[in-house]
Design a binder for these strands. Structure first.
Lengths: 199, 199
DNA sequence: GTTAGCATGTAAGGAGTTACATGATTTT
DNA sequence: AAAATCATGTAACTCCTTACATGCTAAC
């Protein structure tokens, strides 16, 4: 077996493809923008990013454009910055990834990234993602509530406080999702812009 | 160099020591209880747990009690369940870990586990943990707010919605922490039981 | 007496990180 | 010309997961 193309199934792949879907970029800039989609804290390291880019290129999802900023041909051997650009297959693959339904697709990180790219996602897929996340959260609520009902007496007040806060956070997110879903149903092909401002 | 004792610096160590601080347990039961401290979802796998226990035992923080439930001496070679019990050094090490101040100590998971063990944590350390977490969250708020101020116009409404929701969640946690801290200052050696119920 | 659940482990792999190494470009 | 920061990369390591292997004990 040819050892090329090590499996690369993570968050990073999705985030990188999504960002490059918007516009070509070189790695250094990509890293800065990644913080924006993955949460403002949580920066990705170059030690992950560059190998990931190599891998994606190896699979034909993006191509490496050796462009030294201006078109000056200068010295041939110079290691200029590499601008990564999504191929047609890359765009297809991104859409496939975003649309994926597996149970881990609704975990915190995955969902967050998917939402961040809603601007480049079909309306029907957007709705499916929002509803998938919602039902995942309902599962959590059930689990926490029943565990709380079973063990409430045995818990010290700190643990109780923690569980209670967690519960309320999840409930809050469910309400938020409900608003997004409602807004999505009202004007399916538009952004939910009208909703902002009523807080 | 003797290759024994691979570094074991994670969440798991802290959680295991904390649970065994309460009472001796065997691995299987430990795993079930771990979900309680790490969040009701997110179960730990045996593939992590047992090696971790081996490692902790190797460092002298806990000892493996080969007890086959009842005291029946039965057959000598039987692989019974192994009950893990914290040593004195283990308890010391747990207190040291909980009290640690490093910047990653205030990340979501770490903070959650520390809070879950507040019942076995000194009042002064509790306060330091709550305040550490609080200032970590303030840093995040600053980062998100300024990034939002810089890029607000360029963001599509979905991304904006996401950032806004995240921001509000963090603000909510800060208010929660403020209540906990206030309650901690009022009766420093007691649990914050009186606060529950005013929602 | 066989399925189901209790109980303990190991080997391989996945998704990242840190620390290091190197060189180009811009600012002071 | 020194310092900062832009830019790309690699090797080793961390912490965890999956998939597998094994055997005990209780319930049907």
């Amino acid at each position: 077996m040819s050892p090329r193309a090590g499996k690369r199934g993570g968050l990073l792949e999705l985030a990188v493809l999504g960002l490059l879907h918007e516009a070509p970029m070189h790695g250094y800039e990509l890293r800065k923008r990644l913080s924006g989609v993955l949460g403002t804290f949580h920066a990705i390291s170059y030690g992950s990013l560059y190998p990931c880019l190599k891998d994606l290129a190896g699979r034909g999802w993006l191509i490496e454009d050796e462009a030294t900023a201006a078109a000056a041909p200068a010295l041939a051997g110079k290691r200029g910055r590499i601008v990564y650009r999504l191929t047609a297959e890359g765009k297809e693959h991104f859409q496939a990834l975003v649309g994926e339904a597996g149970p881990d697709a609704w975990e915190d990180d995955r969902f967050g990234v998917r939402l961040a790219f809603f601007g480049r996602t079909e309306a029907s897929v957007r709705l499916r993602i929002l509803e998938g996340r919602r039902s995942r959260l309902e599962e959590r609520l059930d689990a926490v509530r029943s565990s709380l009902a079973r063990t409430r007496e045995r818990l010290d007040s700190y643990t109780l406080e923690l569980q209670q806060h967690g519960l309320e956070s999840v409930e809050r997110e469910v309400r938020w999702l409900d608003e997004l879903i409602a807004s999505e149903r009202e004007h399916p092909s538009t952004s939910p812009s009208s909703r902002r401002g009523d807080r």
